[in-house]
């Protein structure tokens, strides 16, 4: 499936707005300034998508399943497995007070970070395209993203890959937001892109 130049541009703008919303929520959660890269958008096979990612890197990954207008998964990927640092940033003193179950709260905090960032992004996409996207509850894993993608899909699947990186200014743990949309519903997403213009036209 190929996107026309205008379709690509609309999709990029929708993703830009949606990821900006996610970055804002992450900024509130971490009390830090978040810088984001312009989202990359491409249709490719899952194997090609995996090739563009570091194979052996261990990641702390939170993902949620998407159903409804879109079908696929959205992953929030942090380099390394040091989620302790992020859990402390979110929970502050309460994290030290909960040190009877540190790993429980570490993983819990990561799932809540993922839930807030992914939900903010997906809600914005749904609102811009005037449709609904259901989200599963978040799942936390420590593995490399290419291995997880391979375990969850087939290498020959055509997917819409949307990827951007969020950098917290005071913390050296970049988070990458990766959306893998299955091609069947990527078509319906593209058909709905004109709704973005309807929304703009209705604004005063």
């Amino acid at each position: 499936m190929n996107l026309t130049e205008i379709q690509h541009d609309i999709l990029k703008e929708i993703m830009n707005i949606s990821v900006s919303k996610a970055a804002t929520q992450l900024s509130v959660l971490l009390n830090d300034k978040i810088q984001m890269e312009v989202p990359e958008i491409s249709f490719l096979t899952l194997s090609k998508a995996r090739e563009s990612m570091p194979e052996d890197e261990e990641n702390a990954i939170i993902y949620q399943e998407l159903t409804g207008m879109l079908s696929g998964r959205t992953y929030l990927v942090f380099q390394g497995k040091d989620s302790l640092f992020l859990a402390q940033a979110v929970l502050g003193d309460a994290f030290s007070r909960s040190n009877d179950k540190p790993q429980f709260y570490e993983h819990e905090a990561m799932m809540e970070i993922g839930n807030i960032v992914i939900s903010a992004c997906i809600s914005t996409i749904a609102n811009l395209l005037k449709d609904r996207i259901a989200l599963s509850t978040p799942v936390y894993m420590e593995d490399s993203l290419p291995r997880i993608l391979l375990a969850q899909s087939n290498d020959s699947d055509i997917v819409l890959l949307i990827r951007t990186t969020l950098h917290a200014s005071r913390r050296d743990i970049p988070g990458t937001l990766v959306m893998v949309i299955t091609s069947e519903l990527a078509g319906s997403l593209i058909n709905k892109l004109p709704r973005f213009f309807e929304l703009i036209e209705k604004r005063p």
Partner: peptide
Amino acid sequence: SANLQQGV
């Protein structure tokens, strides 16, 4: 919630 879709 972080999921503030118009439908919600």
